[in-house]
């Protein structure tokens, strides 16, 4: 059913974000988009070019960015997309997001393009490894992490048509294409991408393709059959799919390009801890800051490349 192979082509996440905003803007004359002086990076400039009257580049002031977006959205009569790099959007403006977007469940769709360690050469100041943790903690905010351009497009359409607040975590990097173009997305519904009986790997974002590659290595090298799940939405998370898989495999590994504190791993841990406790290994960025380097170099440093993931998982399985 799924296209993914080790040599899958890559898709430009940011470009598809910009293109999809324009598509949505053509269908919906009320929709507004905001950015904070990063519109050429986030690609919201594409919307701004076609709809200058509904695009507001407020400059370098993310608190105000979210405040103005909230003012546009308070009547809940339109979708308002607000973009920046994740550090500034979710970090700098966290409290404004909480007080207005979250508390009132406003139809503000926060879409951050530069997230995780793969921000790369800009270094620790820009590598947002804590965004899922701080967005998950706010009631009403739906947290979604698309793994490729095809599901991204479906996520954006869903966010546009669904009332209420979203945090959509994109990336600076191009991601390998994992899904067919007609993939479906439903909030709180994950995708089982590979079936297996020995362990369950739950991954999001770029780590979905890495998990699929790691599963292939585990099978070829060690004969271990790993099941791979992409929950897509971290909040709400597809508890049924997770529990069903854990029942079968009895062992779960989570992989995310995010801190192991408060992210996907903890979301999965919470569900399983309550409904079907099995050993869970959280793989992600440990409790440290990043540093400058290329995305590939940093993924290797933090042992998030497929071969490294396969070895880490294999070693962990041996301890059980």
């Amino acid at each position: 059913m799924f296209l993914y192979t080790k040599d899958a082509p890559k898709g430009d996440i940011r470009k598809v974000y910009g293109e999809t905003l324009v598509e949505l803007g053509r269908k919906d004359p009320k929709m507004c988009v905001l950015d904070g002086d990063l519109s050429t990076s986030t690609k919201t400039a594409m919307f701004g070019k076609e709809f200058p009257d509904r695009f507001f580049n407020v400059g370098i002031d993310e608190q105000n960015l979210v405040g103005v977006a909230s003012g546009l959205a308070y009547d809940k009569d339109r979708a308002v997309f607000a973009s920046s790099f994740s550090m500034f959007l979710t970090g700098r403006a966290w409290e404004i997001i909480r007080q207005h977007v979250g508390y009132n469940d406003l139809p503000v769709k926060l879409v951050a393009t530069h997230t995780g360690i793969t921000v790369g050469p800009d270094g620790a100041s820009h590598q947002m490894n804590e965004d899922i943790a701080i967005m998950r903690a706010i009631p009403n905010i739906r947290v979604v992490v698309p793994a490729d351009i095809h599901i991204l497009k479906k996520v954006l359409y869903k966010a546009h048509e669904t009332p209420g607040a979203f945090y959509i975590r994109l990336t600076r990097e191009k991601f390998p294409i994992v899904y067919p173009e007609d993939v479906e997305f439903e909030l709180g519904k994950g995708h089982l991408l590979r079936e297996g009986k020995d362990l369950t790997i739950v991954a999001i974002g770029l780590m979905v393709s890495h998990a699929l590659d790691a599963a292939t290595i585990l099978k070829e090298k060690y004969g271990i059959e790993a099941e791979v799940i992409d929950p897509v939405s971290v909040k709400p998370i597809d508890g049924n799919l997770l529990v069903e898989s854990a029942r079968k495999t009895k062992k779960v590994v989570t992989i995310e390009e995010h801190s192991i504190i408060g992210g996907l791993g903890d979301a999965v841990f919470s569900v399983l801890g309550e409904h079907y406790p099995v050993p869970v290994k959280k793989i992600g960025i440990p409790d440290v800051f990043g540093e400058s380097g290329t995305a590939q170099e940093l993924l290797r440093k933090f042992e998030l490349m497929p071969d490294q993931l396969a070895e880490r998982i294999y070693k962990w399985l041996k301890t059980l």
């Binding site: 009320k30 507004c32 009257d53 509904r54 507001f56 608190q63 105000n64 979210v66 405040g67 103005v68 977006a69 909230s70 003012g71 546009l72 959205a73 308070y74 009547d75 404004i96 007080q99 207005h100």
Partner: peptide, 16 residues
């Protein structure tokens, strides 16, 4: 935070 919210509402008037 109120002045930002107000600004958003004022800009909404223009959009609409």
């Amino acid at each position: 935070q109120g002045l930002s919210i107000a600004l958003g509402m004022a800009l909404k008037a223009r959009v609409d």
